[in-house]
Design a protein around this nucleic acid. Structure first.
Lengths: 252, 252
DNA sequence: TAGTGGTCTAGACCACTGG
DNA sequence: CAGTGGTCTAGACCACTAA
C-alpha cells in the first residue's frame, strides 16, 4: 500500500490515523462520554492493521483524550488536548531548595496532642503526636532561616528521637524505618506575624512578617504520617518555582 | 509457551522482560552511557518476539532510563528510576485559585521604567513598561484580597488599557493579540511588611504582614512578556499546592 | 456467550546511522 | 554496506465485561 497521503506526506500511518481520530473528536463526531469505534472497525475504516490502530489510539490515549477498557471499549474522555502546567521537582528534597546546605538544631522533643498546639493536626484532638521543635541554619550563618515544628504520629515518633541533628529529611527516615510510601505532599504557604517567642529564637523583631509553610506528607494509604510547620523571617527566605507548559496527563 | 513465571505469576511477558532489564540496569550490568543489547539479542535472550521486547523497552524508556535511536541502538541514560514530584495545575488559571470568583478594579495605568518602581523589571533599566495598578476582590466582599501591579513591555501595553476591568487574565490577552506563546511561568513567594499606601488600599494596618507573589511569564522565545507583583494581606490569602509522586520524565 | 481490548508471534520492509 | 530501531501486516489466543 502506498504510504504517502493525499498531501504527499510520508509519515507513519498510525500518526495519520491518530490525527484523524483527534480531529473527529474535536469536531464532536465522537462526543465526550461516547465510545470510539472498536479497533476492528477502525482497522476497516482506515484500512490498516490492528497493530497500527492500537498505536494510533495509544497516542490519543496518552494525550488524555480517551481511555481504554478491556472488554468494554474505548471511551472519549475529553475533546480538547489538556494543556496544562506542571511544576517539576527533580526530587522532593527540592522542597528545601538547599537542604544539603542547611542543618537543623533541636530545641525540644516532646509528646503533644492537637489541643496543645496551634498547628492544625488532623484526626482526633486527643490523639498523641511526637513533636520536634528546632531551628534550621544555612551553613555557618549565625541567624537561622527557619523555626520548625515537625509532628509524627506517636507510633512513628521514635524517628524524631533518633534523627537528632541528622541531615536526612524526616519523611525519608519514616519511609525507611516503617515502610511507609509517600504518595503526595500538600503544601500551604501564608504570611504571618512572628510571635514573640519564635521571634526570639529567630533573632528578629517580634511581630515582624514571616513566611509560614505547612506541609502534610500523605502515605499511599491516605494517612498523614508527617506534618511540618515552619516560619521563615521575611528577609531570609523566598519560595520560588517554575511551571512549564506541557502536554499529556499527569493525572491518569 | 507457558506464560507463568517461576513464581507462578501470570503477568504480561513484556512486563517481566522490562523488570529484568530494569534490575540489570540498576545492578550496573548495563552502565549509564552504555548500550542495551539490540532488540534481536533481547528476543533471543528472553525467548520472546520482537514486539514483546519493544513493548518492554518502551516501558523502561517511559521511565526515563533509556533512550532509543534509530540506526544506533538503545542507550542507558540513568540507572535509577527518576521518581519525582510534580505539581499539577489543570490550567494556568489555577494560579489564581479562584480567578472566576474574583474581579479586578483599576487604580492607575501609566508608563514606567525599572528605575521608578521597586519591582525588579528585567533588562534595561531605562526600558519602557506599561503598568496597571489595581485591586482584586472576591465576589462582593468589601475588602480586597490583593493589591496588584501588572507590567507589560511598552509594545504590548495596549492590552492593559483595553483590558480594563475585564475578567480575562492579562497573559491570555497578550497571547491572543500578539501571538505570544507562554512557555513557562516563574513564581516567587515571600513575606513582606505592607507599606503604608498599599495598606491603605487594602484596608489593613500599615506594616502588617503580607504574602507577596512575583510572577514572570516567559514566552517561547525566552522573553519575559508579563510580570506581576501582588501583595495579599496575611489573613486573606493562602497559597496551597499538592505534589504527587510520579514516574516518567516531565522534562524530556 | 459474544464482543471488547490486551498480549503475542512470525515475518517483512523501511529509515537512519556508522564505518 | 551491514546493522540498528521504526513501522506494518496477518493471524492467534487470552482476559474481561455485559447481556
Amino acid at each position: 500500500m502506498d504510504r504517502t497521503s493525499v498531501f504527499g506526506e510520508r509519515r507513519p500511518r498510525y500518526q495519520i490515523v491518530a490525527e484523524n481520530l483527534l480531529a473527529a473528536i474535536q469536531q464532536g463526531s465522537y462526543p465526550v462520554g461516547s465510545a470510539l469505534p472498536t479497533e476492528q472497525e477502525l482497522c476497516a475504516q482506515f484500512n490498516v492493521s490492528r497493530h497500527t490502530v492500537r498505536e494510533a489510539v495509544r497516542l490519543i490515549e496518552q494525550m488524555g483524550l480517551v481511555s481504554r477498557h478491556q472488554g468494554i471499549g474505548t471511551k472519549v474522555e475529553r475533546d480538547k488536548v489538556d494543556q496544562h502546567y506542571v511544576q517539576t521537582l527533580a526530587n522532593i528534597s527540592d522542597l528545601w531548595q538547599y537542604v544539603n546546605e542547611t542543618h537543623r538544631t533541636v530545641l525540644d522533643i516532646r509528646d503533644v496532642t492537637a489541643k496543645q498546639v496551634e498547628v492544625p493536626l488532623p484526626g482526633d484532638r486527643e490523639a498523641p503526636w511526637r513533636m520536634l521543635e528546632g531551628l534550621r541554619y544555612v551553613r555557618n550563618e549565625a541567624e537561622p532561616i527557619a523555626w520548625t515544628q515537625i509532628f509524627l504520629p506517636k507510633a512513628y515518633g521514635a524517628v524524631l528521637d533518633e534523627a537528632g541533628n541528622e541531615r536526612a529529611l524526616i519523611y525519608s527516615l519514616v519511609e525507611k524505618k516503617f515502610g511507609v510510601v509517600t504518595r503526595s505532599v500538600r503544601q500551604e504557604i501564608s504570611a504571618v506575624e512572628i510571635s514573640k517567642p519564635v521571634a526570639a529564637a529567630l533573632k528578629v523583631r517580634a511581630r515582624s512578617p514571616g513566611l509560614a509553610m505547612l506541609r502534610q506528607y500523605v502515605s499511599n494509604s491516605g494517612e498523614i504520617f508527617e506534618l511540618t510547620w515552619s516560619i521563615h523571617p521575611a528577609d531570609r527566605y523566598r519560595y520560588s518555582m517554575e511551571m512549564v507548559r506541557s502536554y499529556g496527563t499527569a493525572r491518569d
